[in-house]
Design a protein around this nucleic acid. Structure first.
Lengths: 120, 120
DNA sequence: GGAATTAGTTTCCTCCAAGAAACTACCTTC
DNA sequence: GAAGGTAGTTTCTTGGAGGAAACTAATTCC
């Protein structure tokens, strides 16, 4: 009798796995959570604002990640007709639904850090 | 007057950012969520079980990711003294605290997929 | 005219994640 | 003793993520 996959061999688990892959695919990379988190906290920020807010990111990465997020409908980009041209990035309705996800990640990170510090 | 970081320039935000980085650092890579999710669902699985459960993963990655997870205290590895030597991998108490995080990720992935399908 | 600010793009480079395939090693069954 | 199952390790290779720095381009301030 050959062994087969048991646990994941249900439609529910397949969907679940796929869903996690989807999420991580959309939020892949080193900076997306930081960008989204920042935009959720502070609504409507310019490119240079984000560059200052997010410690360590460079212009290339910020530009690229923002494009990704815009394509996926999580962030909106609006060119303002101001004297020196400015751009406002904001979280979309869809992007705002990530708040609980980011909250859980942050919460877990805090708890994990404490558990590591506590046991050493 | 020079502009400064406003939104993230609070202790709370710095901690939050750090926490997200911590979490993503521990859970980095393509397979950790899948491994953890599988171990949360089906308690105590052997190496070959996991290899079968997780579609697409290879021995090298599985081995490496399991080591990472064990080092970080999220997964336990127990060598059983059975006739052909077997190893049981299980989620730890600490690792089990990831369940809500994984749930949120999965939940969001499902909703996101529906939002994309719904609007096209 | 030169400096500074906005918002990026482009180029070059490096390192690492990830996969394929082969190999080790031990034990059991046929 | 060959096949098949356990649990991995090792080697080789490639694509892409990510970073540094230079560059574009428009406008405003001094």
């Amino acid at each position: 009798m050959k062994k087969k996959a048991i646990v994941n061999d249900t439609a529910v688990c397949q969907v679940r796995m796929q869903a996690i892959s989807d999420t991580m695919s959309v939020l892949s990379g080193k900076w997306k959570f930081h960008i989204l988190g920042t935009l959720i906290e502070g609504n409507k920020l310019g490119f240079m604002d984000l560059l200052r807010e997010i410690n360590g990111i460079g212009t290339k990465m910020l530009s690229k990640e923002l494009q990704d997020l815009e394509i996926n409908g999580l962030v909106s980009r609006t060119v303002m007709n101001t004297k020196p041209i400015t751009v406002k990035y904001a979280i979309t309705e869809n992007g705002a639904t990530l708040a609980p996800v980011i909250d859980e990640l942050a919460k877990w990170g805090v708890a994990y850090r404490q558990s590591v510090v506590g046991t050493e």
